[in-house]
Design a protein around this nucleic acid. Structure first.
Lengths: 251, 251
DNA sequence: CGTCCTATTGACAGGCTTCAAGGAACGTGG
DNA sequence: CCACGTTCCTTGAAGCCTGTCAATAGGACG
């Protein structure tokens, strides 16, 4: 798996000033690659595993289940995302990982990654940063669930997805993107019922903010959508990190 | 500030196998102590700061504001908690820190803490673990906001607070605790309105699950409350961490 | 005793859920 | 190529949960 085709490594290349050695070593850990069917559990919740997962292609999601089957999706995992970073510390996670669309997933050995991070302080710093950003996103999601109305939640989710995708793909100003989410999944992420998601989408459409055809979302009015959502991209920390110049292997 | 009276250090002593040197060094960083009035902003959101905050006594909370003043509380900060761990990585946080009751707060210098963690791998591992636990709690809170009803949310919050307090205070089986939260704060944490919090509390009372007098919560039926909340304490990771035996300063 | 903050109540509206059923899209096999 | 099953989307009706507005009561405190 070469550097250029690994979107996770590519993203870190964009967001950080990690040197080639670090990136290469990381890419090297992404060798065990699987292709996984849509709507498939990759790693169930509450089960310990020795692998972390990087989604190279396709969309996945974290999920949590209540004992009566109610389901919540804390976050969608986009191409280039590390899906279960917490497992670096906690082998047994309390959320699961499932695919949304068909996915190409790399499994990184926990021990190997830990060793790499120990040997490469700059990379470690970057991983710490990734965790902090993930946490910031989790808190913003909390705000949505706690205080935003249904239209606001969906608008906010779309703004977030768009911003994250654009950052990863480095796509220009394109306001359209493939969005493989079903309304069921939107419901589990926004804390709404499927029916209400459906109706709320129609509201956003009728307001001229979005168009949502089969698996394809178009933001018709970015400003309007962001205003509707009270969206402020700061929590995504898309500016990246400069990691302190380390006395590392090579400059 | 001696070890024994610093609840943050005491908690790490309980939860981890950190040696005396690490704990002492950490306690030493907690020297700058302030007493802060109730309902006071300690560190506003969106502002960068060179200090992390440990709450030694009293309750505080993280908070986020929307542009129209809607408020959300992602987490309450209890005695012995590090309130803004993310600031270790992100100097400018997107949540603020405010007191709930009168608090004794220690301000730890970011640079000093970073240096300490760099020099003490075991301590660093523990801090990574703290972050992972914090994230687990954030996701469980998301689940509450997204999928639990009002009575379930409050029941879950009370179970969580009780479990966290008991872990910190190492209190026995006591089912009562001081709870300085106003219904306003409960509302901001649970994503409900004040009025509805009030009514929901009455429901929980009438079900014989809790008693809530002035600033004092009694859990009358722990099992019942946990069942009502679909509470599973796993996400608190109260078992702590054993950090790999490090070739550290002293055994 | 007045003031401020918090808790409590009532009335009413509306957002959102649930139940139920129909329609559209897509893949599969005959 | 069409019948068929499955999954997803859409719609309607009914009602509860929760929010908003407004006003009262209770405590703490100066």
């Amino acid at each position: 798996m070469r550097l250029s085709v690994n979107p996770f490594v590519a993203r870190l290349h964009h967001l950080t000033d990690l040197d080639g050695n670090s990136l290469f070593a990381l890419a090297h850990l992404c060798e065990r690659v699987r292709v996984i069917e849509p709507r498939t559990v990759v790693a169930p919740a509450g089960q310990s595993s020795e692998d972390l997962h990087v989604v190279l292609d396709g969309w996945a999601c974290q999920y949590k289940l209540m004992s009566d089957k109610r389901r919540h999706v804390p976050a969608f995992v986009l191409p280039g995302d590390l899906a279960d970073l917490d497992r670096l510390i906690l082998p047994k996670l309390d959320y699961g990982l499932a695919t949304v669309s068909a996915c190409t997933v790399a499994a990184l050995p926990r021990a190997g990654l830990q060793a790499l991070l120990k040997a490469d302080p700059a990379l470690r710093e970057v991983f710490d940063w990734l965790r902090a950003v993930e946490n910031a996103q989790a808190l913003e999601h909390q705000l949505s669930l706690g205080r935003r109305s249904a239209p606001e939640r969906l608008a906010h989710l779309f703004c977030t997805l768009h911003a994250r995708l654009r950052a990863t793909l480095d796509g220009g100003e394109d306001l359209r993107f493939e969005c493989p989410l079903t309304q069921d999944e939107l419901a589990d992420a926004t804390g709404l019922s499927v029916v209400h998601v459906n109706r709320t989408l129609q509201v956003l459409r009728s307001e001229g903010l979005i168009a949502l055809e089969t698996r394809r979302l178009t933001i018709l009015d970015w400003q309007g959508l962001a205003r509707r959502a009270d969206f402020d991209s700061a929590f995504l920390h898309a500016e990246g990190v400069r990691v302190a110049a380390q006395p590392s292997a090579s400059p």
